[in-house]
Design a protein around this nucleic acid. Structure first.
Lengths: 181, 181
DNA sequence: ATTTAAACTTACTTACTAGTAAATAAAAAT
DNA sequence: ATTTTTATTTACTAGTAAGTAAGTTTAAAT
């Protein structure tokens, strides 16, 4: 019992995050699955349908992930979020937001909308744990929770990007800065 | 007396930063200049030749820019660097590093090399003014100058990316965080 | 004035891309 | 067993991409 649809999404997700949305084709996917490119169109008629579904996959993966952390202390949840990005760093791949944001203007409206949704979902979650953690005294940053959330997410996103270009361990340094206070 | 070569670089730079490297073609450029696409190939036989030249253009622009600041106090130089990114934000475009890093693996070796060079040039400059500014007591951040430089550059780069996706003013919040301490 | 070089255009080629229509195979439902 | 639905292939189309070879115009040098 195979799950071609799921596999297509998984491969597309990987291609988008390693090579970018405008640098992969349906043939790249079909070759990996030993099917014909028309079979990919059967599941996702247009490339933007596939792109949209990849983002939705990332959204539901995110929900599942943070839900499994919701009994942990706020600082541990933040550490987990950082560690999750570190795994990506080790594979030299970026998050879907870092991959798609630069080509935002070339994306179909449905993909743009879904990407905006995803960014908001991540940031609202971050703001929430940063605010609660500050109230409970675990965090003692100076900015507003929202500003801190922007800083954290920006740093993580860009650390993965710089990691591709530079030899240095940008990620380690940024991780320390985020957690320092 | 026209400067077709220079115009091509200028337009390519703009297209890369607004739409991405893999989403523009020589025809996009030739149309804007009312010439044929083969004329663009005359100056830059391969797309990667043009890409490389765009990065070199950005490197020399950077050198010129920071050189014109080098008598200013270190904190003012940092503010100028932030303000320079803010102009990009207003045009909803990203820096060349933010545009190319996600598709790094799809780039020709000459572009990869030049992009690595540019990243190092920026970071070395940032590390320098952050270190000197700390010594002279203008800055009082806790991390190493290198770690702080990574944080600053990451934040600026990603703020421009998030600015495309979100309606909120990510840039303003991040700017405050960077300068806060 | 004529040669030479630079800056193009014309006219292609090859390769790939997204996407579709129609036929076929496999699986599930009746 | 046969119909129906799902999954897939075959065989395309139309469009665009990068890149090239050969010719033409324009400008500069001699």
């Amino acid at each position: 019992m195979k799950n071609t649809r799921g596999e297509i999404i998984r491969i597309a997700d990987d291609l988008i995050r390693t090579r970018g949305y405008n640098a992969f084709s349906y043939t790249d996917i079909s070759k990996q699955l030993n099917i014909k490119n028309a079979a990919v169109h059967y599941y996702f008629p247009a490339k933007s349908d596939l792109g949209t579904e990849v983002i939705r996959f990332r959204i539901s993966d995110f929900h599942q992930r943070v839900q499994s952390w919701d009994t942990l202390p706020y600082d541990q949840q933040l550490v987990n979020w950082i560690t999750y990005h570190q795994h990506k760093k080790e594979n030299k791949c970026v998050c879907i937001l870092g991959a798609l944001a630069p080509v935002y203007d070339t994306l179909q409206e449905n993909m743009q909308t879904e990407l905006g949704r995803f960014s908001n979902i991540i940031l609202e979650w971050l703001i929430d744990i940063l605010a609660k953690g500050k109230q409970s005294g675990i965090f003692n940053y100076k900015e507003s929770p929202r500003a801190k959330a922007y800083l954290v997410q920006s740093s993580l996103l860009a650390a993965l990007l710089l990691n591709k270009v530079l030899d240095d361990d940008v990620f380690q340094a940024i991780q320390n800065s985020i957690l320092m206070q």
